[in-house]
Design a protein around this nucleic acid. Sequence first.
RNA 1: GGUCUCAUGGCCGAGUGGCUAGGCAGAGCUCUGCAAAAGCUCCUACAGCGGUUCGAAUCCGCUUGAGACCUCCA
Length: 505
Amino acid sequence: MALYEKYPVSISNSLSGKKELFTPVKAPFVGLYSCGPTVYNEVHLGNLRTFTSFDVVFRYLTHIGYKVRYVRNITDAGHLTNDAGVGVDRIEESAKLEQLEPMEIVQKYTTSFHDVCRMFNILPPSIEPTATGHIVEQIEMVKKILNNGYAYEINGSVYFDVRKYNEKHNYGELSGRNIDELLEGTRELDRQDEKRNAIDFAIWKAVSPNHIQRWTSPWGEGIPGWHLECSAMGTKYLGDQFDIHGGGMDLKFPHHECEIAQNVGALGKSPVRYWMHTNMLTVNGEKMSKSKGNSFLPRELFAGSHPLLAKAYSPMAVRFFMLQSHYSSTLDFSNEALSAAEKGFKKLSNALTTVKEMNHPFPILSKGRSTDSELEAELDRMVNECYTFMSNDFNTAKTLAVLFEMSAKINEFKSKNLAIFISEEAFNNFKHTYISFMEDVLGIKDEESHNQELMDGVINVLIELRKKARSDKNFALSDKIRDELKSLGVQLMDGKDGEMNYTIE
RNA sequence: GGUCUCAUGGCCGAGUGGCUAGGCAGAGCUCUGCAAAAGCUCCUACAGCGGUUCGAAUCCGCUUGAGACCUCCA
């Protein structure tokens, strides 16, 4: 029996507003799509929270036996800041600002995005398609929507006719909006617009002759509408209807709403069965966003070089910090919270190192001790909880709570010199669950330290000297060695048997 | 203005009607030459006011406060 059958997954579906049992269209295959970045500048920490959340979804579904195809796009083309056509193209704007070709901007920030993902241990998706690589597919989709009568062409642009669409379908089903209210609530009606209704959105947009990024289409030269790429690429790689589509809450409307309309308009089918939306990272209770000036970049975080940051934080501490809350809740950033997370992360990380070196204590068992069935049951309970909590809408917070319990057990086993009376199977199951949930599912890895071997060697020399000093009862010297290493960030720890370990901050 | 969320112990945070989540900080103890690490113990909260229920942090109503979306946004 596959793990996903033993621990069935449930997901909070934004479409229904309820938590639902997850049943893929075609198990064991799962199609997962999440909206990636627009590569016109660097991603900030808030963006990263969403990518981390879906990274864990991808990791967990894979871990329990699903064959997941994870598609996360790169938006590298025509992305106007609004649908009316009076906005600016972000990439074009950056290109002018930095005096680079649009594709240079795209390359630069795609590379930077990948670097950041690597640092945060965010796995590459199965497919990472770009908008510019799928212009043909997007044009085809526009044609279909036009043929089905849900769009109209005017001055070389094509707009989705929301009112027409809503006659037969339900525009607003995802975000809970009412089309009449949307029509009424539209602001700035005074501006002359070529759209029939203010809520219509561009699926193809004619551009002025001085616009650098442009493609030829049946309607003239232009760029695809910004909601269109996800529809086209999701359909291409995952099919007319796939399992999970995710993104930040702020994409729910209009982006995802429009995506549904486009798919239904073109193919007559709602594209996604389970919509997942991650909540925002906040700073002092307010959404982190560039326009508010309260956002910071990953590299500023690692360097501690931002007014909001009291010090530098490591990528894994930040990843752990994010996983301590549920993806659907807002998470408030603060230095206090992050410092606390740093320590918690270290605790789990230490236990991970410890358990990797631990092996089942056969000698004790072979002396005829019977197994401790109570302890075995407790370990088994923890193993089970890791799965049930993750299967319950990817509750990383509860899973971490169990991992802390497990780490306490690991330390206990160590301090008792492995004098635990459990079967080899029970121990290995426990050990492997801890390791795999830490590393494979939550993606928490040991921090890499540079020149590890050299450090090891140098510190070991000092450890030998200190051992000698201690055996000579020269505590003044032994303390001096320890204290001075400590001031450099190296903590020595004496074991019972005279052995010494160390950790580096 | 419309739509919708959220309010939990010193701090961060989980919680989907009944059984003290967890982390950080703090206090005490054990181990240790002294530390560190680790273990054990203590710290039992759910914005306010009503209601439903044998029982509510959890459901309903009102009040107060915070936020999100309605423009680009993860």
